[in-house]
């Protein structure tokens, strides 16, 4: 039983907003299957009583004063936009 099917690869690509060619889907199905097989090695370990580590530093929330600072000028940020219109980012149609 393969770890991951072509249909699952298509579903995950949809979640990731990633367009893949048919050839890429086939390659990824094979490669992801082998990688997931390898990763399954972790199941050899019983971790029921182990706390997860999301972060190595003993820090939790870091707060700062809520004070106003000068933001990056609008023009500077928009200068990088692939398309813009009247001081906004322009994108293709969102709704019908």
């Amino acid at each position: 039983m393969p770890r991951i099917t072509l249909e699952e690869v298509e579903y995950v690509a949809q979640l990731a907003r990633l367009e893949l060619t048919e050839a890429e889907k086939r390659t990824l199905t094979e490669q992801l299957g082998r990688i997931l097989d390898y990763i399954a090695k972790l199941n050899e370990l019983n971790t029921d009583a182990v706390e997860p580590t999301s972060h190595v530093l003993p820090i939790r929330n870091i707060f700062r004063e809520d004070e106003a600072r000068d933001p990056m000028p609008r023009e500077e940020a928009l200068r990088l936009a692939p398309a813009r219109h009247d001081g906004y980012y322009e994108v293709p149609r969102v709704i019908e």
Partner: peptide, 25 residues
Amino acid sequence: DGVRYGYRTPNAEDLIEMYRKTRGE
């Protein structure tokens, strides 16, 4: 996602397609 900076696909009709193609390409 091709909105604020970087590459954007020239071949998209709607927003989701733009995301997918921008990232795929």
